[in-house]
């Protein structure tokens, strides 16, 4: 089946380490035909642009005009375009520069960070930083289906889109009296008792993050940082998170203390933009508003 397949890898702005996992995954590599069918991978020496590609994996965010053109050109030549990794779909860590206008330095740069779905229409979206083994298993099946049966309608999203809290192993003591007692930064947690991070006062982005990652951080004692992108029904990770912690923060102190008490507690969240939008800043509604305010054109 893998006879004569031509696959390509395109690395845009980002670390692009996740692309290495594609050919290391046995099932996926078997379907794609291994290293022998790689026709285009600029960073690994396959610099010649082929006439047509069956599968193209794109990782990283779009930062320069040259990348936009290259992406559009390759889209026309490709049957199945896979936006691979969080950076390509939500901007990722590179997206934290979305509000820095680099175009004044050099005309080559865009005014903001764009993502792959902003420029072209991808066929398959795979989130994750990096995408996990389960997601790659699912991706292998989907790509096989694509190559054998042709293009199904619409985009395919790989991974579980439910909220991370839904099957989280850390349960709260009583879900009906759920309260966040304070805002702590994660190094301030002295004794971890294995309960929900929010109930211990640690900011965990689990409620608004989709659960494709399989709780990698949470099982190892770290709060979620939101790398897997927003869950189903979440419009904007940061704004929806504000809404949810507004309901649970210091709930038992409501009607007892005045507003300045809550304000003092919330001032402990020193950098809300960096914390709540660590991986999804270019897709934020507030970024859209800030860029509109500056008069940055297309977005």
């Amino acid at each position: 089946m893998s006879e004569g397949l031509s696959i390509g890898f395109l690395e845009l702005t980002g670390c692009s380490t996740c692309l290495e996992n594609v050919l290391l995954h046995e099932k996926l590599s078997g379907i794609l035909g291994g290293l022998g069918s790689v026709k285009y991978w600029p960073s690994h020496g396959y610099t010649e642009e082929p006439d047509s590609l069956d599968v193209l994996f794109v990782s990283g965010a779009v930062r320069s005009r040259g990348q936009v053109e290259k992406l559009k050109k390759l889209r026309d030549k490709t049957r199945v375009l896979v936006a691979y990794g969080t950076c390509s779909i939500y901007g990722g860590l590179i997206g934290l520069t979305a509000l820095i206008d680099a175009s004044s330095r050099s005309g080559e740069f865009l005014e903001t960070v764009k993502t792959v779905p902003d420029i072209v229409e991808p066929d398959i979206l795979v989130t994750g930083c990096p995408p996990t083994r389960d997601q790659l298993d699912e991706l292998a099946g989907v790509i096989k289906d694509y190559l054998e049966n042709g293009k199904p309608r619409g985009k395919v999203f790989i991974g579980n889109r439910n909220s991370l809290c839904r099957d989280c192993p850390r349960k709260p003591r009583d879900p009906y009296r759920f309260e966040m007692p304070s805002i702590k930064r994660d190094h301030e947690l002295v004794e971890d008792d294995g309960r929900c991070f929010l109930e211990q006062g640690i900011l965990c982005l689990g409620p608004v993050t989709s659960s494709g990652c399989g709780h990698l951080c949470i099982l190892r004692g770290r709060p979620c940082m939101g790398c897997n992108g927003p869950a189903r029904g979440v419009v904007d990770q940061g704004l929806n998170y504000i809404s949810s912690i507004g309901s649970i923060l210091l709930k038992s102190m409501e009607r007892i203390r005045m507003f300045d008490y809550f304000a003092a507690e919330m001032d402990k969240l020193v950098d809300p933009m960096g914390y709540l939008y660590r991986y999804t800043l270019p897709k934020s509604l507030l970024t859209e508003l800030a860029l509109k305010k500056r008069g940055v054109g297309e977005k």
Partner: peptide, 8 residues
């Protein structure tokens, strides 16, 4: 707080 950080 968020709006101030975004320049609004």
């Amino acid at each position: 707080k968020l709006m101030a950080q975004f320049g609004i």
